[in-house]
Simulated assay, not measured.
Amino acid sequence: MEHQYKISDPQVLKAVSHPLRVRLLGLLRTDGPATASELGRKAGESSGSTSYHLRELFKYGFIEEDDDQRDGRERRWRARHAYTSWDAAEMSDTAEGREAVRIMHLRQAEMVQRLLGEFDVAQWPRDWVDAAGMSDHIVSLPPAGLREFKEKAEALLRDLAAKYAGDPEARQVSAWHGAVPRSTPTEEDS
C-alpha cells in the first residue's frame, strides 16, 4: 500500500466525499481487503450499493482489486493508500474546489462523530478510557502558528506510532486534530 494519495482535482475530491465512499474506503484501510458483500454487512448497506460505490472508488484510483486474496465468486478490494490528502488552499482557487473541500471537511467531522459514538467506555479498561477522548482549546494564533501546530501534531503522531510499533498493548487508534479560525475574515486578512 502506498503512503498517501494527494488529490489536486476537485472532481476527484468530490467523488470520494460521498458518505458511503468515505466509510468504505475507511473500512478497507482499517480492516483490510474485503468484498462488496462483507463491506455491505459492516456498513449496513446492500451489496449492490457497496458494489457501485466501490467501482467509483476504483475509477478514481482509491482502491484496487486484491489478487492475493481472490474470492472465486466476488472481487476482493483493498485500499491503495494509507490516507488521502489535498491542498485546501490550492483547491480553493475555484468555486468547485471550495465546495469539494467544504463537503470533505463535513464528512471528516461526521466520521469523528460516528467513531466517538461507537466508543463505549464501559467496554474498555480504565487505561484506555483515561487516554481516549477529545478536548477543545481556544487560542489566538496567526496562520504560521496554526500551520506549525498541524505539522508538529502530525510529526508527533508519526514518532509515537514508530516508538510503539510492535507493543503488545497497541491497538488501532483514530487520532484527529483540526483547527479553524472562529470569526469571519476581515479586509485585513485578505
Rank of each mutant, 00 (worst) to 15 (best):
Q4D: 08
Y5K: 10
S8Y: 03
D9H: 00
P10M: 09
P10Y: 10
P10K: 07
L13E: 05
A15G: 06
V16M: 07
S17Q: 08
L24R: 07
L25E: 01
L27V: 01
L27D: 10
G32K: 12
G32Q: 12
P33W: 15
S37I: 02
A43Y: 12
E45H: 13
S46K: 01
S47P: 07
G48D: 14
G48P: 00
S49E: 11
S49I: 05
H53R: 04
E56S: 03
L57E: 02
K59Q: 13
Y60P: 01
F62H: 04
F62K: 02
E64A: 15
E65H: 14
Q69R: 15
G72W: 13
G72E: 14
R75M: 04
R76K: 14
R78E: 04
A82Y: 07
A82I: 02
Y83H: 12
Y83M: 02
W86G: 00
A89P: 00
D93L: 14
A95H: 05
E96R: 09
A100Y: 08
R102L: 09
I103V: 15
H105V: 09
R107Y: 01
Q108K: 03
R114N: 05
G117Q: 04
E118Q: 14
D120F: 05
P125L: 12
D127L: 08
D127F: 06
A132Y: 06
S135H: 11
H137Y: 13
H137N: 04
H137C: 05
S140T: 15
L141W: 15
L146A: 12
E148A: 12
E148M: 07
E151R: 13
K152W: 06
K152H: 13
A153H: 13
E154V: 05
L156G: 03
L156V: 03
L157N: 11
A162L: 06
P168H: 10
E169W: 09
Q172S: 10
G178P: 02
A179Y: 12
V180I: 11
S183F: 14
T186M: 06
D189N: 13
